[in-house]
Amino acid sequence: MKFASWRLLRDVIDRSDVVLEVVDIRVPPLTRNPKVEGMVLNSGKRLIIVLNKCDLVPKNIAEGWRDVLKEYLGVPTVFISAKDRLGTKILRDRIKEVAKVRPLVVGIVGYPKVGKSSIINTLKGKHSAPTSPYPGTPGYTMRAQLYKIEKNMYMIDTPGIIPVRGENLLAVIRGKEIERLSNPLLLAIKLIKFILRFNPKAFIEAYGFKDVDPVKIIENYARRRGWFSKKTREPLLDEASRQIIRDYYNGKIPFYVPPKEGFLLNPKELISDSDEDL
């Protein structure tokens, strides 16, 4: 699977009047891309940060990240839930406010599965942009496409953008097809540790597991689902790891990073050194 090249990204920015950077509100520091933001602002185009999936966090967390990002970046920032159609009117109004030209073309960028196509579907009111919950599966947007949102307003949907260097844990997990992960167990262990750092009860709430050892959590999940090797009868840890990652995508595991400007200044505070070589 190929991701949008920086050349394609530049083309999308050049074609747009307004660019929406869609970010996962559960962990904005690791799902925003400062390089892309710089490209947009340096081109003279208007940038709006869209914090999606606000249905997965308390309202005060959504408001907190909106305010922190707005002050930190100095650009309009809104939070929405494309799935529940919350905040979409505010987003539509903000787009019209920042760019007075008509017809208006809006570019949408972001990491895979932050909800770019879902936002298009919600704003248009029809399921016209193909969507799928996991990278690499049918509906996963592979090339730039133009969709009419309303009269004199169009949107460009692009593939997820992954930095060439310095990928963090969540970017790597989002950027690879789940079924083709070379070491899903290692990635799931890192993800579980990351989640537990911010919600020690996450896996009690999600699965009823009291263990905080990531391997034990994965083993228990495999046993619960009845996933065992036919030869050894050992739990299928890789399969359980992939499903836990899917559950993270789907928001089944309660988790979010609290608003803190320091995390934006130094996102590496959120990940351990061992994550940086992924």
Results as ranks from 00 to 15, higher is better:
residue 117 S to A: 07
residue 151 K to R: 15
residue 181 L to P: 02
residue 123 L to Y: 05
residue 136 G to F: 06
residue 122 T to H: 05
residue 146 L to D: 01
residue 168 N to G: 08
residue 168 N to K: 06
residue 145 Q to E: 15
residue 186 L to F: 03
residue 141 T to I: 12
residue 124 K to R: 14
residue 201 K to P: 00
residue 123 L to S: 03
residue 148 K to G: 14
residue 121 N to A: 08
residue 128 S to R: 07
residue 172 V to K: 15
residue 204 I to W: 02
residue 135 P to T: 13
residue 156 I to M: 02
residue 207 Y to A: 11
residue 170 L to R: 06
residue 167 E to K: 15
residue 164 V to G: 04
residue 165 R to W: 03
residue 126 K to H: 12
residue 167 E to A: 03
residue 145 Q to V: 14
residue 179 E to N: 13
residue 166 G to R: 13
residue 190 K to I: 08
residue 139 G to T: 07
residue 132 S to T: 12
residue 180 R to V: 06
residue 155 M to I: 06
residue 145 Q to D: 15
residue 200 P to W: 09
residue 163 P to G: 05
residue 166 G to I: 00
residue 124 K to E: 11
residue 181 L to C: 02
residue 195 I to K: 00
residue 184 P to M: 06
residue 177 E to T: 02
residue 118 S to W: 05
residue 157 D to W: 02
residue 193 K to N: 14
residue 173 I to T: 03
residue 126 K to T: 14
residue 126 K to R: 14
residue 167 E to D: 03
residue 152 N to T: 02
residue 146 L to C: 10
residue 118 S to E: 10
residue 185 L to N: 06
residue 178 I to E: 06
residue 136 G to P: 05
residue 135 P to M: 11
residue 141 T to V: 13
residue 118 S to T: 11
residue 115 G to N: 13
residue 172 V to Y: 14
residue 157 D to R: 09
residue 152 N to G: 10
residue 162 I to E: 01
residue 154 Y to C: 05
residue 195 I to V: 13
residue 137 T to F: 03
residue 142 M to T: 14
residue 125 G to A: 08
residue 200 P to C: 11
residue 133 P to Q: 12
residue 199 N to H: 03
residue 154 Y to V: 01
residue 154 Y to N: 05
residue 121 N to F: 07
residue 185 L to C: 05
residue 158 T to L: 04
residue 132 S to I: 04
residue 196 L to Q: 04
residue 166 G to P: 06
residue 200 P to D: 12
residue 172 V to E: 13
residue 122 T to N: 06
residue 200 P to E: 12
residue 191 L to I: 06
residue 154 Y to I: 06
residue 126 K to D: 14
residue 129 A to E: 00
residue 116 K to T: 09
residue 132 S to C: 01
residue 168 N to H: 11
residue 136 G to Q: 09
residue 123 L to P: 07
residue 162 I to C: 04
residue 126 K to F: 11
residue 198 F to Y: 13
residue 146 L to R: 15
residue 162 I to A: 02
residue 177 E to V: 05
residue 162 I to F: 04
residue 128 S to A: 13
residue 199 N to K: 00
residue 178 I to C: 01
residue 130 P to T: 07
residue 206 A to S: 13
residue 129 A to M: 07
residue 130 P to L: 05
residue 147 Y to T: 12
residue 167 E to Y: 01
residue 116 K to V: 02
residue 201 K to T: 12
residue 134 Y to T: 10
residue 134 Y to K: 10
residue 130 P to I: 05
residue 120 I to R: 08
residue 192 I to Y: 03
residue 202 A to H: 04
residue 201 K to Q: 12
residue 188 A to C: 11
residue 176 K to I: 14
residue 159 P to S: 04
residue 142 M to L: 14
residue 124 K to H: 12
residue 162 I to V: 14
residue 113 K to E: 11
residue 166 G to M: 09
residue 133 P to T: 12
residue 185 L to T: 12
residue 193 K to L: 10
residue 153 M to T: 13
residue 187 L to E: 00
residue 182 S to Q: 12
residue 186 L to N: 00
residue 139 G to F: 07
residue 163 P to K: 04
residue 113 K to H: 13
residue 159 P to E: 03
residue 196 L to C: 01
residue 144 A to E: 09
residue 197 R to Q: 04
residue 204 I to E: 08
residue 133 P to F: 12
residue 205 E to F: 00
residue 196 L to H: 05
residue 119 I to F: 09
residue 185 L to G: 03
residue 153 M to D: 01
residue 145 Q to L: 15
residue 174 R to V: 08
residue 149 I to K: 06
residue 128 S to P: 00
residue 204 I to P: 01
residue 113 K to V: 06
residue 169 L to Y: 08
residue 118 S to A: 15
residue 135 P to F: 10
residue 121 N to H: 06
